[in-house]
């Protein structure tokens, strides 16, 4: 019995040796390779973040001595509190929140109200208006002409300068428009029969049906406003109008603000200029990290929605 079994199993093995066996060793190699490479990539992605967070909460002397790698040495939150209370960080944070908050709301209203008429095949003038948006997407006046417009309108150094020029991103508008086009017409039709106007239909029927695309595009806008460095830097000059990105750039490239702060007498052992830069960077990452699960979920949806039309 035993022998027969062995024989059979041996037999099976030999049968599979020709076709199955190479596959299974190949599969194993492949799997090991996949785990190793992706593990390595994950580490490369995570370690720099860990480094800067560690630097923000490690003991001051160790930060100065360069002892911080990818894990905190000691623990203190003095630096973080110092940055939050004694520097221009809160002002910059406030500016960024204002620009991102108002900007996203304005952008979404503009985007939805533009996308809706353009999504209706029977809308008269649809081709002309769509063409205008495509033209504005392809032709770009350039940096200096755009600056001259903002300057002529007297918007330099205002929140409006960081919001209005980017109020409608054509690509996002087209994503929303494509989504509206995919919605079934019948529900809107029945509301129309009941006497609801176009705006009414948009607000109480189309928008609730479009939650996924509205969430995705809102996040696209919010990330755009939050991360925007160049335009904020170009259109605002006074320090109290700096957004977070502008402020971070200034302290990273020359920690003047912090050095002055430190020189002004309130010396504390844990507070180092390097540690403070790291703390400011870490603090600015927090909203992103909190929002990340939603962001990544919706962004993946967004990629799929966006790629429906290509």
């Amino acid at each position: 019995m035993e022998k027969i079994k062995e024989n059979i199993s041996h037999h099976r093995k030999s049968v599979f040796a020709g076709r199955g066996m190479p596959a299974s060793t190949g599969e194993k190699c492949m799997s090991i390779f996949a785990y190793t490479v992706m593990g390595l990539f994950s580490l490369i992605a995570i370690l720099p973040c860990l480094h800067v967070i560690s630097k923000a909460i490690s003991n001051g002397p160790d930060v100065t001595a360069g002892n911080i790698y990818f894990w905190p040495v000691g623990f203190q939150l003095e630096t973080v509190f110092y940055v939050l209370t004694k520097t221009a960080f809160p002002t910059a944070l406030k500016n960024s929140l204002i620009v991102t908050g108002f900007g996203t709301v304005i952008s979404m209203i503009t985007t939805i109200t533009t996308a809706y008429p353009l999504s209706k095949p029977e809308f008269k003038g649809r081709k002309v208006i769509t063409l205008l948006y495509v033209i504005s997407m392809v032709f770009f006046g350039g940096m200096i002409p755009a600056y001259m417009v903002v300057r002529s309108l007297g918007l330099l150094d205002t929140y409006a300068a960081c919001i209005l020029p980017f109020a409608i991103v054509q690509f996002n508008m087209f994503i929303v428009k494509n989504y509206f086009e995919s919605l079934p017409e019948s529900i809107e039709e029945s509301a129309r029969v009941d006497g609801a106007g176009d705006l009414r239909i948009l607000v109480s029927i189309v928008c609730p049906m479009s939650k996924p695309v509205i969430a995705t595009v809102s996040l696209l806008y919010a990330i755009n406003y939050w991360n925007n460095y160049f335009h904020a830097m170009m259109y605002t000059k006074s320090p109290n109008m700096n957004t977070l990105q502008v402020y971070l750039y200034n302290i990273i490239s020359n920690s003047q603000d912090f050095v002055e702060n430190l020189a002004s007498g309130n010396f504390m052992i844990n507070i180092t200029s390097e540690g403070m830069v790291a703390a400011a960077v870490t603090l600015s990452l927090i909203p992103m990290i909190i929002l990340y699960p939603f962001v990544s979920k919706f962004m993946i949806q967004g990629i799929t929605i966006g790629s429906v039309k290509g």
């Binding site: 533009t114 350039g142 209005l164 176009d198």
Partner: peptide, 26 residues
Amino acid sequence: AMYLMLVPGLFFMIIYKFVPLYGILI
């Protein structure tokens, strides 16, 4: 209402996208 809805978008597009095209003359 369909045409009123287009106003904000067109407003921003004309001022911030088309007026800069005129600025190319610089």
